[in-house]
Structure formats: structure tokens, C-alpha cells
Simulated scan of single mutants.
Amino acid sequence: MTSGGAWLVVAVPCALVGAASFGMAGAVQQRATKQVPDTRTLNPRLLLELVRKPIWVASVLTVIIGLSLQVVALAFGPLMLVQPLLVTSVLFGALYAAWMSGRRLDRIVMAGALTCMAGLSAFLLLARPSGAGDGVIERRTLPLAIALGVVFLLCMLAASSFPGEIRVIALALGTGVLYGITAALMKVVTGQIRMGGIGEPFQHWVLYVVCVIGPFGFLLNQNAFQQGKLVSLVLAVITTVDPLVGVAIGIFWFGEHTVSTPAVLTGEALAGVAIIGGIAMLAHRGEYLRQEAERTTPGNPPGEIHGDDPARS
């Protein structure tokens, strides 16, 4: 089978089914985090509380399925092809959340999710990645690693300084950075397996970094779900930042290339505006629903406020 055939037959379906798994897991986890006490950011006690809930444990298994499919997709397709497909988890998450709450999907939530999906897909499709893309780190990693570290620290600072949806966006942004790095390093691990067998990754530092960054990203993801009103907002930010980090790593670490003509750059700028607009729509709707819930049920604990439930007028 040609490389292009493998992308179509293996990588694309695996990425889409993986996105559906992530969306379902996100909707379940967001609801479960509302039913346990609030914890500080990156406090492992949150996981100790959540692990007592069977539905949350089942959602973790769904995440594992999604990650497994992502690994397969990355093994057969380039990073900048697989990651854009995973953005469909935003729509899947919104649909699952509405279904679980027994309500129709909020039109503003749907519009925001679709806007984010369209903007990010257009941005990455316009880039038209080419080059190595085989998961071999070809260049120095330190400058980009420092930049990503600074972004992550700023996210944590913002999350501790601002309330409401700004805090949620900061937590989700930090999660997206960690997930993007993890996905890129997973690409390296899959390349090592294909070249040297199942034992090859254990001889390199990449696997051990994944084992540290991945769990931190997962815990931060649960913090974002717990603090957010809309699962769609959290998923939109994560699935936007994750592939954009992947693009940066693909270019600076893997030696991949993107099209950079004036027309393409203009299209990417417009796609970026669409992404920001979609996230802004979700953030505004999330804050509105949060305030509406507080007005209608001022004494309710966090566990009684469910995500992606449209407010009644």
C-alpha cells in the first residue's frame, strides 16, 4: 500500500474514531468533575476523588482507546495530517454532552464549535505539510522547548489570577500545550518502534518524558473540566492548541515544511480569526450559562451544575 493509501485507509479513520472517543470521554469527565469537591490546580486529590466514580473510570478507558487509535494514526500519517482530524472531538463532545443532559444542542455552542473546527482545519490544510514527517528529531529542541515552557507557566499564572472562563481558557491552553508535546513525542516513539522493535523506545529519553508530561496534561485537563461550564470550550481550546503546537514541533524539530505564499498566509490569518471567534463565542456562552445557573439556583453546589446545558430564557 502506498503512503498516500495508508493515510486514507488507516490514519484518517483511526484519527476520526479517536476523536469521537475523546469527545465522549470529555463529556463524561466534565460531568463527573462537577460531582466532586473543587481542588487546586494539579492537585492529585482530584484524581483520587474521581477514581471512585465508575463512569469516570470507564471514560478513562475510552481515552485509552482514543490514544491507541491516535498512535496508530500517527504511525501511518504525518503529524500535521492526524492532528487536524482530532479537532472533530469538539463537535463530538458537544453532542454527547447535550445527549447526556437530555437537552437539545445549544445553537450558540454548535456555532462556536463548528467555527473552531472550520478555522483550524482550514489553517492546517492551507499549510499543506511536506518534508520528513517521520518522527525523527532533526534539529535542536531547546529554543522551542523554552518557548513552550514559558507559555505553559504563563497559563498557570493566568489560571491562578483570573476567575470564570478566563481561568478555564488558561487551564485548557496549558493542557493543549502539554498534549501537543505529548502527541509529537508519541510520533517519535512510534517511529522508534517501527525502526527498532518494541524495545527500542526504552533506550531513549523520549518515552520517559512522555510518561511524565502525559499524566500532568491529563490532570490539568480534569482541572479545566471542573472549572468550566461548557465542555465544548475546554475541548475547543485544547484541540486548537494541541495541533498548533504539533505544527511548530513538526517544523522546528522534525524538519517538516509548510506553504508560506502570501495568499496562503492571508488564508491562515483569516482562519486564525475564525478560531479566535469560535473560542470567544464558546467563552461568552459559557460565562452566560454560569451566571444563569447561579441566578436560578444560587445555593447549588458545583455538582449540580452540568456542562453544555442551554439556559432557559
Results as ranks from 00 to 15, higher is better:
residue 5 G to N: 10
residue 7 W to P: 02
residue 8 L to E: 00
residue 15 A to L: 06
residue 16 L to F: 13
residue 36 V to K: 14
residue 37 P to E: 04
residue 38 D to L: 09
residue 40 R to D: 03
residue 40 R to P: 05
residue 43 N to R: 07
residue 45 R to F: 01
residue 48 L to S: 02
residue 49 E to W: 11
residue 50 L to E: 05
residue 50 L to I: 03
residue 51 V to K: 14
residue 57 V to T: 05
residue 61 L to I: 10
residue 62 T to K: 12
residue 72 V to P: 09
residue 73 A to H: 01
residue 73 A to K: 04
residue 79 L to M: 04
residue 80 M to R: 09
residue 86 L to R: 09
residue 86 L to V: 03
residue 92 F to E: 07
residue 97 A to I: 13
residue 108 I to N: 07
residue 110 M to Y: 15
residue 114 L to I: 03
residue 119 G to V: 01
residue 121 S to C: 14
residue 122 A to R: 07
residue 126 L to G: 03
residue 130 S to P: 00
residue 130 S to A: 05
residue 133 G to N: 04
residue 139 R to D: 11
residue 141 T to N: 04
residue 144 L to N: 05
residue 144 L to P: 04
residue 148 L to T: 00
residue 150 V to I: 11
residue 153 L to F: 10
residue 154 L to G: 08
residue 154 L to N: 07
residue 160 S to Q: 11
residue 161 S to K: 13
residue 167 R to H: 06
residue 182 T to S: 13
residue 186 M to Y: 13
residue 187 K to W: 14
residue 187 K to E: 09
residue 193 I to Q: 02
residue 193 I to K: 00
residue 194 R to Q: 13
residue 197 G to W: 13
residue 198 I to H: 08
residue 199 G to F: 15
residue 203 Q to D: 11
residue 204 H to G: 11
residue 205 W to A: 11
residue 213 I to V: 14
residue 214 G to N: 14
residue 215 P to K: 01
residue 215 P to S: 01
residue 216 F to N: 07
residue 217 G to V: 05
residue 218 F to E: 08
residue 220 L to C: 10
residue 221 N to P: 03
residue 231 V to K: 13
residue 234 V to N: 00
residue 236 A to L: 10
residue 239 T to S: 14
residue 240 T to V: 08
residue 243 P to M: 11
residue 243 P to W: 12
residue 245 V to S: 04
residue 246 G to V: 00
residue 248 A to M: 03
residue 251 I to H: 01
residue 253 W to V: 01
residue 254 F to Y: 15
residue 257 H to D: 13
residue 259 V to L: 12
residue 260 S to R: 06
residue 262 P to K: 14
residue 262 P to M: 14
residue 264 V to C: 04
residue 267 G to P: 03
residue 271 A to C: 09
residue 271 A to I: 02
residue 272 G to H: 07
residue 273 V to R: 05
residue 274 A to M: 03
residue 294 E to R: 12
residue 296 T to F: 11
residue 298 P to M: 11
residue 307 G to F: 03
residue 309 D to K: 15
